[in-house]
Design a protein around this nucleic acid. Sequence first.
DNA 1: CCCAAGTAGTTGACAGATCAACTAATAGGG
DNA 2: CCCTATTAGTTGATCTGTCAACTACTTGGG
Lengths: 171, 171
Amino acid sequence: MTRWLSIEEQAVWRSWLVATSMMRERLSQDQEEGSGFSVEEYGLLVQLSEAEGRRLRMSSLAVLGLYSRSRLSHSISRLVDKGWVTKEPCDTDRRGAWAVLTKAGFEALEAAAPIHIESVREHLLDPLTTEQVAQLGQICATIAEHLCSIEGADTALALRVMGGPAPEPSK
Amino acid sequence: MTRWLSIEEQAVWRSWLVATSMMRERLSQDQEEGSGFSVEEYGLLVQLSEAEGRRLRMSSLAVLGLYSRSRLSHSISRLVDKGWVTKEPCDTDRRGAWAVLTKAGFEALEAAAPIHIESVREHLLDPLTTEQVAQLGQICATIAEHLCSIEGADTALALRVMGGPAPEPSK
DNA sequence: CCCAAGTAGTTGACAGATCAACTAATAGGG
DNA sequence: CCCTATTAGTTGATCTGTCAACTACTTGGG
């Protein structure tokens, strides 16, 4: 027995679709015009830049960046080619590998950040009232938490930045 | 002079990123498991199904579905191969082409709809309070409208379903 | 009536993402 | 200590999306 969407719910859903997809596209566009990398790569570099020693194990980075292992592997290879990242073997687990942000990578990130931020402000935060921004934060956090609770436990790691202290890494 | 994001703003932005990307992924997964097509294809078929005569000119469909011409052309070819859609020449403009939903396409859509709806409810609507759903609708509509106003005029067409009567098509 | 400019749509080359299969190393129960 | 199950990461085939170039048709000014 399908519980169909009411007109209002449909409207909410469609505006969600339009807003998220247009926002994603606009961000990509702004980003790629200014800096040499895509929004996705930007996200990875940010994660690395915030990590201790500007390095993360591949699998942690995959979780934090919501990447599949395979996608990450391919992406990182490209970043290595561009010189933003290097890979180092892991002493304590010889299967493992560290992805390490290079100096050049960090500088590229610093250069790109203002463009990114400006785009976020202009297209997401500025058009909303302060109250709406707060509501949006609450709403997205709820949705994200709900989705995390469904998936594997450690996906929740991706939320660690979203408030509260960082949970202990799972390994 | 970059106006950096406050901690709270950062949290909002990141939860937006996580929520939108996880939501998209989950929806794809639920969808593809049950029906034979992707969320994107689903969107196109819905647009066709709602149009008069279950047909749309390629360019209108591109606007409504937020597709580039090229992407649409490729996607429609695939849908034609699968038998969900056919293409018909346009009498009044011999450059033009109609994308027409087939009977099989409509049936596939009907079969997929409950899965789609269920996923939207479960992951987006249900975890939120009624009030939050309303807020989210308002927020997304604002963002979408803002983005539309930046881009070309006719992108606004994509919003026609979001409430209010349909504006006159631009041509 | 003609010609330039614009529009509709397609195409093919390329970049990025997904998927399944693979190697290599660790972990843990007997 | 071994043997299986699990985890880390990579690879290559395939699919989808993007971009720029292209054909074909329409439109509107002179």
